[in-house]
Write a protein that binds this DNA or RNA. Structure first.
Length: 676
DNA sequence: GCAAGGTC
């Protein structure tokens, strides 16, 4: 549809930077900004028009009552509801002022469900829903934007309803379950303490706990293999075994004897091949967070915060993006020229500028609203802090690398054999560092190998039987947990790092020696949630939200109906928790203690004192986790006996000594050692 | 105070 004639239009953008791009596309002029919020004036459809920015959500859901269950809420300005949201007030003030002379409203926020809600609420509270339009664009380029404004639509009711529904569902689940947790905590400990649960944070906590439990009850497998070294011209090289490890000690000794007796290996084939390593695509936020952690040791949330600062200083593009592609319209030559004014990049920039065409590498990930992260080419007009500079440097180098030539390596692979046993020896060197010259955070592995001919025989210097242990799954770090969230598609680019920090703030997670640890509180909260609100610890809650929201968007289900379903689901569970708490208070019942794992009634774990869930073969009571560790310790022994021939007591001593064995498994082994 | 989602 085209716009109806109106005297004055008010165009709402999602944020100041987007407003500026819309203004540029529509040739509007910047005005005001005295309040700290810029706006633009121009003409649209022959009539006067304003463009005013929001700053993301300006409204938020607010509870109508304390306590729980609570299903009464209303939309209110964010500065009234949230601490630290005072800055949103000036945005509302400006829009409200401009709205007085406006007679029609255009929602020009990002074309997704949140953008639909952001614009809609502003129009609902400060404008007029009945004289409102929506523009739809897939990028913020002048072409897309001016086309979008030539073909405006009525308000996108489906998207708005789906968006409102998402907010309401997250709110009623999150607020109610959080309040229930706090009430349980108070009943048990007598203390007030802030606890929380939510569709994204709780499955993440659960995942961290699951991994921790796997590790703490882990008992390694033992196996045996061979280390074979050859000697060429006085230099020793370790061979790679191209056969499955023999596993048992007995077989390994037998093969070792055979190899020693043979004394030499024959070169079966020689392969020399060039390998070319293409440059990586420019950063999206998850890639930037991963690399900033690896190279600079920054946490994902620190990276986002610093990147936001660089963005607000116009040094880099919008960082909350999932795209690994640069837009074709981007003037890369101009950006590289800009960067060449910074000394450290000058040499490499010159190389790039001498190329006839600048073609950046690009990845598979796309983002409808924003391109990959790139430097704007402006030089910093203030001194950057050390961290800012290092992150900026990482982004610039990654961007420049995208234009660079491939890195060239030369690899040599020898295939060797001794009888039926096959080995290989590989090495390589850099022919041309290519893009790694500028993105120097990559260490191309160079390894020296001797010069050998096919058919040549070389002497075996040594053969050793080595004992190996399998390793537990790795501890999560902030980065790998964030990647897990990404892999199961919960949270968004903009929120994942913050939600992780919430888990730390609540005291559910803490930074351990080389990764994330779940605290006692974290694991108790997780077990409470699993007992009373099982859905909230699973990623399936997000999946079911997505299905419902799709239906709301398509008009197949009403928002009210979806919300009602959630209320009907939650209400009885919340009442149940409330009743249990009452019972606990009035009758001194021990149930909540039990739920919290500090039971009074019943048998207790012989090792940690928690309520027992089972017992050993000799009838010793154990809690759930120690029972799991016990089963692992017992069941692993047959394999150890088969492969190494050790007796049970020696086995226990070995697993107690091994760094691979989990803490609880060690406790069980120590307990069992009493029989030795 | 509590969610998750935007962004200064």
């Amino acid at each position: 549809m085209s716009l109806m004639s109106a005297d004055v239009y008010l165009i709402i953008a999602e944020k100041p930077k987007a407003a500026a791009k819309i203004a540029y596309a529509l040739r509007f002029k910047k005005a005001g900004g005295k309040s700290g919020v810029p706006f633009w004036i121009g003409r649209l459809n022959g009539a006067k028009a304003y463009i005013a920015p929001a700053a993301g959500h300006l409204y938020s859901l607010k509870p109508r009552s304390p306590g729980y269950p609570v299903f009464e809420y209303e939309w209110a300005p964010r500065y009234e509801v949230e601490r630290g949201a005072a800055y949103t007030r000036k945005f509302l003030t400006l829009i409200s002022k401009l709205s007085k002379s406006a007679t029609a409203y255009i929602n020009a926020c990002d074309y997704d469900i949140e953008g639909s809600v952001i614009g809609y609420l502003i129009i609902r509270f400060l404008g007029d829903e009945k004289r409102a339009y929506r523009v739809k664009f897939s990028s913020l380029t002048p072409e897309d934007l001016s086309a979008a404004f030539k073909k405006v639509s009525p308000l996108d009711t489906g998207m708005i309803e789906a968006g409102l529904c998402r907010h309401e569902l997250d709110w009623i689940w999150g607020i109610n379950v959080s309040r229930a947790l706090m009430e349980i905590f108070k009943a048990v400990t007598g203390k007030r303490y802030v606890l929380s649960a939510g569709r994204v944070q709780s499955p993440t906590l659960m995942e961290a706990l699951k991994r921790q439990n796997e590790r703490s009850t882990f008992v390694p497998e033992i196996y045996f293999t061979l280390d074979v070294w050859v000697e060429v011209n006085g230099k020793k090289f370790k061979l790679t075994n191209e056969f499955a490890p023999p596993l048992t000690r007995e077989d390994s000794i037998r093969i070792a004897k055979y190899l020693r007796r043979a004394g030499e290996a024959q070169v079966v084939s020689v392969k020399e091949e060039p390998k070319s390593l293409r440059p990586p695509p420019p950063f999206n936020l998850p890639d930037l967070q991963t690399e900033a952690s690896r190279v600079l040791g920054l946490s994902p949330s620190q990276t986002l915060r610093i990147a936001e600062g660089l963005y607000l200083n116009s040094l880099i593009s919008y960082p909350r993006t999932n795209s690994q592609r640069l837009p074709p319209s981007l003037n890369n030559r101009k950006i590289v020229e800009g960067l060449s004014r910074i000394n450290v990049y000058q040499g490499y920039c010159r190389k790039i500028l001498s190329m006839a065409e600048l073609r950046p590498a690009s990845g598979k990930k796309v983002d409808p609203a924003h391109p990959a992260i790139y430097p704007t080419g402006y030089t910093p007009n203030r001194k950057l802090s050390r961290r800012e500079w290092r992150l900026y440097d990482l982004i610039v180098r990654r961007y420049l690398a995208a234009f660079g030539p491939a890195a060239k390596m030369s690899y040599t692979t020898y295939e060797l054999r001794v009888g039926d046993y096959r080995f290989s020896l590989k090495g390589g060197f850099i022919v041309n560092p290519g893009w790694t010259e500028v993105y120097r955070f990559i260490n191309l592995r160079q390894k020296e190998v001797p010069r050998l001919r096919e058919g040549e025989r070389i002497s075996i210097a040594s053969v050793k039987v080595v004992r190996k242990y399998s390793v537990p799954p790795p501890k999560y770090t902030k980065v790998t947990l964030l990647k897990w969230m990404e892999s199961v598609d919960i949270g968004t680019e903009a929120t994942r790092a913050d939600i992780l920090e919430v888990l730390f703030k609540r005291g559910y997670l803490k930074q351990g020696s080389n990764g994330v640890e779940v605290t006692e509180l974290g694991s108790e909260v997780a077990s409470l949630l699993g007992r009373f609100f099982n859905e909230i610890v699973s990623v399936n809650l997000t999946r079911s939200f997505e299905e419902k929201l799709e239906m709301v968007k398509a008009g197949k289900m009403a928002r009210k109906e979806v919300v009602k379903e959630a209320v009907e689901y939650l209400r009885p569970r919340l009442e149940e928790v409330k009743d249990l708490i009452k019972k606990y208070r009035s009758e001194e019942a021990t149930y909540l203690h039990e739920v919290l794992g500090r039971g009074i009634k019943g048998r207790k774990c012989a090792i940690c004192g928690r309520l027992a869930e089972g017992s050993t073969d000799d009838g010793v009571p154990l809690c759930g986790l120690h029972l799991r560790a016990y089963r692992n310790v017992i069941s692993r022994y047959s394999l150890w006996k088969e492969r190494s021939g050790v007796g049970f007591c020696k086995y226990l001593r070995s697993i107690i000594k091994s760094s691979k064995t989990g803490k609880l498994a060690k406790e069980i082994a120590s307990y069992l050692m009493r029989e030795c």
